Amino acid sequence: MIDELVRVGFSSQEARVYVALLRQPSATGYELAKVAGLQRANVYQVLATLVERDIAEQVTDTPARFLAKPPAHVLGRIKQDTAQRCDSLIVDLAALARPAEPTAFWSLRGRESVLERAGALVSDARERVAICLWADDLDWLGTPLRAAARSGCQVVVNVFGDVPVDFGEVYRHEAPAKTVGGHLLTLAVDSTTALIASLDEPAAAVYTEHPALLRVVEKLIRDEAYLAAIYERLRPELEDAFGLHLVELRSKLLPAEQASALMSVVGFGADAATVEELNPFE
Rank of each mutant, 00 (worst) to 15 (best):
K34I: 11
L220E: 14
V46P: 01
Y18G: 02
T28K: 05
A270M: 05
Q39I: 04
F66L: 01
T49C: 02
F242P: 07
R172I: 10
P144Q: 04
A273T: 12
E112H: 08
C153S: 13
V122M: 06
Y18R: 01
L133P: 02
K34V: 11
Q39F: 11
L213E: 10
G9R: 03
D136A: 12
V129R: 06
S26M: 13
L220I: 11
L262Y: 14
E224K: 05
Q24E: 14
E174T: 09
P255D: 14
R172G: 14
V180K: 10
I131G: 04
S198C: 11
Y44C: 00
L93W: 10
D271R: 08
S11F: 01
L185K: 10
A225I: 10
V170M: 08
L5R: 02
E239R: 06
G142T: 07
V217L: 03
Q24P: 00
A56F: 00
L133F: 03
R16N: 03
T82A: 15
H173D: 11
V59C: 02
A273M: 09
E201K: 08
H183M: 01
I2T: 15
T186G: 03
E209K: 12
R215N: 11
G267R: 08
L67G: 00
T143S: 12
L121T: 07
K252H: 13
V155T: 11
E282P: 00
G161D: 05
A68W: 00
T192I: 01
V275R: 09
E237D: 15
P144F: 03
A205N: 05
L220W: 11
L32Q: 00
A270N: 07
Q80W: 10
H173E: 09
V180I: 12
L187V: 05
E174Y: 09
I2D: 11
Y18A: 04
G110H: 02
L238I: 15
R98M: 08
L185Y: 07
V163S: 05
E237A: 15
L32F: 00
C153F: 11
I196F: 04
L141Y: 06
H183I: 01
P202F: 02
F167E: 10
T49P: 00
V159F: 08
L234F: 14
S264G: 12
E174M: 05
L246I: 09
L213F: 10
E57L: 09
K178F: 13
V189G: 07
T208P: 04
R109C: 00
L254P: 11
I221V: 15
T82D: 08
Y226Q: 05
K79I: 03
A56V: 00
E101R: 12
G267K: 04
R146A: 13
T62I: 07
P25L: 03
L32Y: 00
P211H: 04
C132I: 03
E101K: 07
A188N: 04
P280F: 08
L115N: 09
Q154R: 15
A68K: 00
V43W: 02
F268D: 07
V59S: 01
D190V: 09
E57R: 14
L195I: 04
A203S: 15
